[in-house]
Amino acid sequence: MLKDITLGQYFPGGSPLHRMDPRSKLLILILYIVTIFVVKGFFPYLLCVLALIAAVIVSTIPPKMILRSLKPILIIVLFTGLLNLFYTPGVELFHLWIFKITREGIATAAAMALRIILLVASTSLLTYTTSPMSLTDALENLLGPLKKIKVPVHEFAMMMSIALRFIPTLIEETNKIMSAQKARGADFESGSLFSRAKALVPVLVPLFVSAFRRAEELATAMECRLYRGGEGRTRLHSLRYGRVDLIAAILSAALCGGAIALHILL
């Protein structure tokens, strides 16, 4: 039951998208999102959709996975689409009782739905091709200037890395403890809501005990290795812009420029 939770959803691979510097991926994603919210009209969107499809093909992530990431937002897309469809003033095409559909309504609804889909799909592509660890590294690096105004960026990033690092461990631990208690006849699947909540006590108590134990062990281990915070710390895998990043940057600048140009010209 817990194995269905895919946090971070990283999909290991060796495609150019996987090999890119996480910082440039993050920045390109931001640029892409800005673009899809700035532009309007058929051709700019076509360009954005094609760019995303191209990126998915390059990434070797199965398209099925991208579609799966869209499933949870289906309702939001439908809801926004319908609201825009019925409540946009403009040239009336169709009238039924209190509902009326306008030409502008159709356009706005399609645009909004497409924007949300592109937003989620492109973000998923980032998390599918980037491990949570390199994402945190990228964030720490990009937010680095905030250290000047005494924001503890390194500490936040470290906390985030540790939390991400321990999610799978704790899930595994939970599974183990659940199996052990099931082997002793604990029943997590039947009974009323109350009795099911009560059945979790034999899982939660050992889980908390072990989480605290792990935290303490980790703290000791870090201190043994003289961890003193981010000051003067170097990295094993330093982030580096490479040729792939340069190509990606040029392509995305072209995409953004192209989409905006199409938006202005048409």
Binding site: K176, I177, S179, A180, Q181, K182, A183, R184, G185, A186, V201, P202, V203, V205, P206, V209, S210
Partner: peptide, 28 residues
């Protein structure tokens, strides 16, 4: 089958949760 086959996991002490030893042994 859960009761016909008793399974002791690795490091089984991490599954203890009750207030007293008696209650924990009595869980199964």
């Amino acid at each position: 089958a859960r009761f016909a086959v008793g399974l002791v996991f690795q490091y089984p002490e991490y599954q203890l949760f009750e207030e007293t030893v008696f209650k924990d042994v009595a869980f199964g």
